[in-house]
């Protein structure tokens, strides 16, 4: 009886540890700046996009408005249309998950402001903006306003 109890406890502990391990392994990896090029290479965008640097990205997405400092944005890769479309792809890497969470709100506000600014000007671009992907993983944040959103999603899987 004692052996059976010991075996049962060992089995439960083992299963529990296995489950925890699986949970950790199942967590999607963080986004990397290389994902932006991967989206472009996958044909997610209908035109060649222009690169933006971190300073400009910080201003463009109004990250200061959500309480962030420029130093909070550790790294980034941003491709954006020069004006022909509203397409863009970005990966932003922050100092921590809290900063990324704040930036996620800023990016959603940015998308809404793009919808407001382009409803009359580029109405054909509005569906892309409405379907825009803003996704956070840990301290990283992905933005995709794409002509082919499925291609963008596959590229970052």
């Amino acid at each position: 009886m004692k052996k059976l109890l010991t075996f049962t406890l060992a089995l439960a502990l083992s299963l529990g540890l296995t489950a925890c391990g699986r949970e950790q392994n199942d967590a999607p990896p963080l986004y990397g700046t290389s994902h932006v090029k991967a989206m472009a290479d996958a044909g997610a965008f209908s035109e060649e996009l222009e690169e933006l640097d971190g300073d400009t990205a910080f201003l463009l997405y109004k990250l200061a408005d959500c309480g962030l400092e420029r130093e909070d944005l550790k790294d980034c890769a941003v491709l954006r249309s020069a004006g022909a479309t509203c397409e863009e792809g970005a990966v932003l890497v922050f100092a921590g998950a809290d900063e990324a969470e704040a930036a996620e709100r800023a990016l959603k506000d940015y998308i809404q402001s793009q919808i407001d600014a382009n409803t009359d000007y580029r109405p054909a671009e509005i569906p892309k903006l409405e379907e825009a992907l803003v996704d956070r993983r840990g301290e990283t944040l992905l933005l995709a306003v794409a002509n082919d959103l499925e291609a963008a999603k596959k590229a970052v899987e």
Binding site: E47, E48, E50, E51, A82, G83, A84
Partner: peptide
Amino acid sequence: VSRDGVHLVKDAC
């Protein structure tokens, strides 16, 4: 200089 005939690419900016 432009991709749509109106807006300027980065080098032109």
